[in-house]
Design a binder for these strands. Structure first.
Length: 233
DNA sequence: GCGACAG
DNA sequence: ATCTTGTCGC
């Protein structure tokens, strides 16, 4: 938890710092060999989330302060820093990667599988931030978003648990999942070491009565609370 | 040229 | 991310 944030976690983070660099990493990760994660037994599901100080529509600003939180069971960890980049679709890792990694690494124990507020295989180079973060942390990950980046899918029926495939040119990259009746479906993305079906299973086990899976709700709340606290003194 | 475009 | 709109429940 950095109280007076700087760019400090970026240079030493090992994450790419330029679009060209990131794109190369994404292309490499998209073709990397992997063994599929099978959710067996009691799987510990964690989540991470980032929010920023500037709340303007459209692209976020460079040099904005960000707060990331990671949640696993009752434990919460938070990290904060100035993020050098604004938001650009396809390059979210430049803005949030090191922040999310820092929050997850601040947990006492790592989860068996991590939910990330970003896409995975649904990406121009098939390597969204959820996939990349999993590779960096060596953890299976699942991406969760409100809407797809490139993928398309039909609306699942309005029954809790109903799902319909999200695809890019016939390639299945995730599912639209109705986690709550009467609520918009969430996008569940295959990411690092997770097939679309495994991703779906993980999300269903982590979801209670609310639309958003519990670990992600916890991380989201924690990040926003940290932001509110730090923006006072 | 215009809209779309994870957070 | 944020905003708008609509609906339901307190």
């Amino acid at each position: 938890m950095t109280n007076h944030p700087g760019h400090d976690i970026w240079p030493a983070s090992g994450w790419p710092t330029t679009p060209d660099e990131l794109i190369r990493v994404q292309e490499t990760l998209a073709h990397a060999a992997w063994t599929p994660f099978r959710p067996l037994g009691r799987v510990r599901v964690g989540a991470c989330y980032t929010c920023f100080a500037q709340a303007e529509p459209g692209r976020g600003r460079p040099d904005d302060v960000g707060w990331a939180a990671a949640a696993l069971g009752d434990e919460i960890a938070v990290a904060s820093a100035v993020s050098p980049e604004g938001y650009e679709a396809g390059l979210l890792a430049l803005r949030e990667g090191p922040l999310l990694e820092a929050a997850v690494r601040a947990l006492t124990e790592l989860p068996d599988v991590l939910l990330v507020d970003a896409t995975g295989r649904d990406h121009p180079r098939r390597a969204g931030l959820a996939l990349q973060l999993g590779a960096v942390l060596d953890l299976p990950t699942v991406g969760l978003t409100d809407r797809p980046l490139l993928a398309r899918g039909d609306d699942p029926e309005d029954v809790r648990g109903a799902a319909s495939p999200l695809s890019i040119d016939g390639e299945r990259v995730g599912y639209l999942l109705r986690t709550k009746q009467g609520a918009r479906p969430i996008c569940v993305h295959a990411a690092w070491r997770t097939m679309p079906e495994a991703a779906l299973e993980v999300v269903l086990t982590a979801t209670g009565q609310m639309r958003t899976p519990e670990p992600l709700r916890a991380a989201r709340t924690a990040a926003r609370v940290a932001r509110a606290r730090d923006l006072r003194g």
